[in-house]
């Protein structure tokens, strides 16, 4: 029978295994199971089709291929921009005086619900009635209105822009918190040594920030890869599917076309790409953790809030 020790362990760990099992593993397995079937509930069709869904998905489905590339493009460009802007603003907040009101202002886009901000940008970028084109035209930068949301080349960039506008504050917040965690004596020492600013940034601040960067970037990667609301509201996936992301394609296949089997195979592939992406990102960013590389945990001091300029 089960040894007493194991029994004791099971009592404590058991609920922890069962609960996530019920709310995470079971639905995931259900979706995996569905992805090998053809299920259209309302017509009472439910049949095992083997790998047929996946064969079509990877073989002939142009919409899927473009959804994958749109999603990856959206993810990398928006997270990249958000990171660069976020780092810039975080450094500004950390090393410049009078930042209380700036901090407040910075948070405004993040406070607005995504659907509202997407609608806002949709109207501002409207080709004929939008303020962006109006300004560009009145300044004389363009003659004809720029079709931000109706040109297949521009629409995805417009969506990226709206997303960057909205989520950069989150990046700022996370990186700013990371910057506050950098020991003050490290910075003082650097100042005493008259470290040039770039060296300070690349050799002190960024290595120290690595854990915060890893958290922020992975968080945003996960979020951006599942993007739905911004695009659903701004372009609906058009024009010509140039902005259709995997989430949008899955949603359409599930809830508009009611093809539960095929929709599940889309979602399974999406989850797998996402898992791979997260693993790679985490490995890259966490790999050379300064704490692990010899600085030792002793270097970390409780956060200091006074800065003497």
């Amino acid at each position: 029978m089960i040894s007493a020790k194991l029994k004791e362990r099971l009592i404590f760990i058991g609920p922890l295994i069962v609960l996530p099992g019920l709310i995470v593993a079971w639905p995931v397995l259900e979706v995996l199971w569905l992805s090998f079937r053809n299920r259209v509930q309302i017509f009472h069709i439910d049949r095992w089709v083997g790998a047929a869904n996946y064969l079509y998905l990877f073989g002939e489905d142009l919409r899927f291929a473009s959804a994958v590339s749109n999603t990856l493009y959206f993810t990398f460009v928006s997270v990249g921009l958000e990171f660069l802007l976020g780092l810039g603003f975080a450094l500004y907040l950390r090393f410049s005086p009078e930042r209380e009101w700036v901090k407040g202002m910075m948070l405004i886009p993040w406070v607005i619900p995504s659907v509202v901000s997407a609608r806002l940008w949709q109207w501002m970028l409207h080709a004929e009635a939008g303020i962006v084109n109006y300004l560009l035209q009145s300044v004389g930068l363009t003659d004809a209105p720029i079709p931000w949301l109706s040109s297949p080349d521009l629409a995805l960039h417009a969506a990226i822009f709206a997303d960057v506008w909205k989520t950069t504050p989150l990046m700022v917040l996370l990186l700013y918190a990371g910057l506050l965690g950098i020991p003050e004596n490290l910075l003082r020492a650097a100042r005493v040594d008259r470290t040039p600013p770039f060296r300070m940034l690349f050799c002190i601040l960024i290595p120290q920030l690595r854990p915060a960067i890893a958290t922020a970037v992975v968080l945003r990667l996960l979020d951006a890869f599942r993007v739905f609301d911004v695009i659903y509201v701004m372009t609906g996936g058009g024009p010509a599917n140039s902005t259709e992301t995997l989430s949008l394609y899955a949603y359409r296949t599930y809830f508009q076309s009611l093809q539960f089997g095929y929709g599940s195979s889309v979602v399974v592939v999406q989850v797998m790409i996402l898992a791979g992406l997260t693993a790679v990102a985490y490995r890259l960013l966490q790999g050379k953790n300064p704490a692990a590389a010899g600085d030792g945990p002793g270097e970390f001091h409780p956060r200091r809030t006074e800065v003497k300029e």
């Binding site: 919409r63 024009p239 010509a240 599917n241 508009q256 076309s257 009611l258």
Partner: peptide, 16 residues
Amino acid sequence: IPISQSVQAYGSGALA
């Protein structure tokens, strides 16, 4: 509905 969605997607791609 699914057929129309396919026509909308690829038709719009061909038009653009």
